[in-house]
Design a protein around this nucleic acid. Sequence first.
DNA 1: TTCTAAAATTTCATAGAATAAAACTCAATA
DNA 2: TATTGAGTTTTATTCTATGAAATTTTAGAA
Lengths: 261, 261
Amino acid sequence: MTVQPKESEPRAASTMRSLSRAIEVFEQLQRYDHPQRLNQIAKDCGMSSPTTLRILRVLQEAGLVSQTDKNYRIGPAVLPAARVFLEADPLPRSARPILQQLAENTGLTASLYSRLGFERVLIERVVGAASLGYELPQGRRLPLTVGAAGKILIADLDEDQLAEVISAAVALKYEPEETTVEEIRRRLPEPGEDYAYSEDERATGVVSIAVSVPARTGAVTESIALTAPVHASSREDLVARVPELRHAARRLADLLASSVY
Amino acid sequence: MTVQPKESEPRAASTMRSLSRAIEVFEQLQRYDHPQRLNQIAKDCGMSSPTTLRILRVLQEAGLVSQTDKNYRIGPAVLPAARVFLEADPLPRSARPILQQLAENTGLTASLYSRLGFERVLIERVVGAASLGYELPQGRRLPLTVGAAGKILIADLDEDQLAEVISAAVALKYEPEETTVEEIRRRLPEPGEDYAYSEDERATGVVSIAVSVPARTGAVTESIALTAPVHASSREDLVARVPELRHAARRLADLLASSVY
DNA sequence: TTCTAAAATTTCATAGAATAAAACTCAATA
DNA sequence: TATTGAGTTTTATTCTATGAAATTTTAGAA
């Protein structure tokens, strides 16, 4: 069974084509390990080099892209933008005290993730007393198909949506080729369970449990997770924390709904 | 003497208009204290509401803008972009160990700033033993006309360029109306001095000294600063550190020049 | 609730910009 | 010096971005 190719996505009718293309370039630049040449970027984005060049120049003018020699990469202007987001957005602002309290009460690491496209992003994290042995920086992109906090974000999707997520996960190298919907579905929570669990999944030596943050729209886009070293917590220990997690998620949802903006 | 208005800027010929406009919207959103309505944004960017709406929708699709009710603000997608910048860009990567060493040797706080448009941005900072009594987060935008690290970035500008910087500083509320070039010029280093000094300037109770990082092009776009509580360091103390600062700046420039990309 | 004014959104004809082919320039390498 | 490939500029054409106007929605007042 093959997953559907990109062009089947029912994109909104052709609006702001050059802007959409610029965003594609901007996103593509974030995926490279190293700065890339014009022709490579053009090829990867499926556009001609003159067009790509003009986009890169405008982005560069704004500091969103920078260039050394003929190599392009993400520029410094993203830094102040992220600062604005972290200081002003109700999501990270509201999450901080809630994660803090979770971490204090449980001694575990508490994290808030947000779904962005076909990945999740670590928005905020408070490290608990029990060290995980690795660090995960704010803003890191992670898979949706791996790890409790990712899986709970896709637990409610229908077959088609899930297939799309998996297809993207393969393209992003998070999953091997030929990964099937069934394989992934087996990892996901059983119907009725409102939490996801993972053990040695995204990071080895680590267990994690996550719940989703109910959104006004009903579409789940945020999740809260507790993570512990595998030797320190059993599955039962973590499942026992679910009510507390659920409470934190509810509190966050309430805070977001009541935030003036 | 009045400074010239915006429209005199010799912008590159009308290329990628919708992209330039989108960037303008994106930048404008970063300047608001609170999320704003469509019409306000349209007005502040000088474009029609249908156009602004279409731009906001495309940006929102990518997560660069988010919306609650009718209010728009910067979205979460800037966070992973900033993460990529901090982890991959040679500027913050090379600066970290150099600032670390500066902070250790001097006991003071060492910072790297980058000029972005008509502001500077804190790229990296290592806090020294002597606390400054306040925190300055990575990515914060600060004025070019105030503070040693800002002033050294505009020390070499000609009259016209300086007038443009001041005009922008007034528009950004960093300087009062009617600020003259002469007033600012008096703050700047004397001709021949390759460092800038500030005392109780941007932050009270703090003295600072800064040198520029020589760039390949000759256009100065980065500066390194040492900052200390005013009671702990005299001007002479800081000036005595200039050779060390100069050395650090040179080392950074060399690292940047030799970084493969 | 209903009414009213303002804001948001959609529609649409037109102007004008984005596009890619092709020509050209430049740099690296043989 | 010739050759190759990448980057860049030019340009005719296509198609999209644009804002006025119409329409719908929202929010506040009565």
